[in-house]
Simulated scan of single mutants.
Amino acid sequence: MTTRDRLLGLTVVVLWGLNFLAIHVGLEHFPPFFFAGLRFAVIAIPVLLFVPRPRVPWRWLLLYGVGFGILQFAFLFTAMRTGMPTGLSSLVLQSSAPFTVLLGAVFLRERLRGVQLAGIAVAMAGMAVIGWDRSHHAALLPLLLTLLGGLGWAFGNIGSRLAAAASAAVNPLHLTLWMAVVPPIPMFTLSALTEGPTTGWNAVIASFSATGRPAIAALVYIVALGTIAGSGLWTYLMSRYPAGTVAPLSLAVPVVGIAASWTFLHETPSVLCLFGAVIVIVGAFTATSAGRRAPAVELDTPGPLQPAETTRRAELNPKLAEV
């Protein structure tokens, strides 16, 4: 991974780490399923009107939207609403990194170098240190829900990788924006069935009062910076590198999330927790420094491939070469 792209990855880490504060504020006002649907609906409406749909297969776009948009945030928002501490949720959600590496190896047949595996192991050890230190702050159910959110994120990563690989000309920002079209209707339906048909809309009306303005500010941050900017950069990186190279970057998100929750929510971390955060940073950047660029592969190129081109694509990604 180039220095510039690693800096872009670091930008995503900061945006997503602070995003947990915005989620915390929003969930104090909105019910979780409705809030998840609302954050994507705000994006989806102008996207449908003004942004051309990227020329990628619908199945990969749906996988991206269902995994990243529905499963991740339905589970995460529910976990945080039921008592998952903000800082700890930013840590446990990063289980998406090893989940993504595993799914990438199984479904995309991506080869992992030894130094990548070592870096992931170090980062996971740091996560284990933080989790062991802070696990007494969360009940079992919120922890399990957050882990399921991480698994959903991993499936979304695979979907975005396959969608980007389907066309060399795909615009990562357009892909991210069109992913947001998938979650709103399912999430609003789930909200109506479980939270009540009018609960979320009443919260929207109340958000324009003085007490509800922080929730509006949180929604703006989540939409503009957490989703459009952060997810757009993330999709760009996933389109340039194997999933196993990009995914470990997310392991550094808890460092920002825990620091932010310490500063603004007074969730004070221990010395052991801070030590684990340092280990996470070292492991994540060791893992990302090992991968080389993997150019996107066109899946629907007309006409037969030349033998040399077939061999080159097979070396880049055997699974995609068979499609």
Rank of each mutant, 00 (worst) to 15 (best):
T268M: 11
A247D: 11
L251D: 12
T235H: 12
T245N: 11
G244Q: 13
S207W: 04
T245E: 08
F208L: 07
G244T: 14
Y241R: 12
L219S: 07
G212Y: 05
T227M: 02
I205M: 04
P214N: 08
G212H: 07
V256Q: 08
G230L: 00
A229Y: 00
A206R: 12
T235F: 01
I216G: 05
G257E: 08
P242Q: 06
R240D: 04
L251F: 11
G232Y: 10
M238G: 03
L251H: 13
A217D: 03
S250I: 12
E267N: 12
T263L: 15
G257W: 06
T211W: 01
F208K: 02
V220G: 08
A243Q: 05
I228E: 11
S239M: 07
V223P: 04
I222H: 01
A259F: 14
A215Y: 04
A215R: 02
T235C: 04
F208N: 00
A247H: 12
S261W: 09
V256L: 09
S250E: 06
L249E: 08
F264R: 02
G244K: 04
A206Y: 05
Y221R: 01
Y236Q: 12
Y236S: 13
F264S: 06
L237P: 06
V246M: 10
G257T: 10
E267P: 13
G226H: 06
V223Q: 10
T211P: 00
R240M: 13
P214E: 02
G244S: 15
L233A: 06
H266F: 08
G257M: 12
Y221I: 00
G226Q: 02
G232I: 10
A229W: 01
I258R: 02
A218K: 05
S209M: 01
A218P: 05
M238I: 15
I228P: 07
L219R: 02
P214D: 04
I216L: 15
A229Q: 00
V256W: 08
I258Q: 06
L265H: 10
T227C: 01
L233E: 04
V253E: 10
S209D: 13
L237D: 06
P242W: 07
V223M: 06
A206S: 13
L225S: 00
L251A: 03
M238C: 07
A247S: 15
S207M: 05
I258N: 02
G232T: 12
A260Y: 00
T245V: 15
T263H: 09
M238Q: 15
A243G: 14
G257I: 08
V253N: 08
L225N: 00
T235L: 01
V246T: 15
I205S: 09
S207T: 10
H266Y: 09
A229G: 00
A243R: 03
V220H: 08
F208R: 03
V246K: 01
A218Y: 10
S207K: 06
V220S: 11
S250D: 03
T245W: 05
V204Q: 01
V256G: 03
A229I: 08
G244R: 05
V204S: 02
W262N: 09
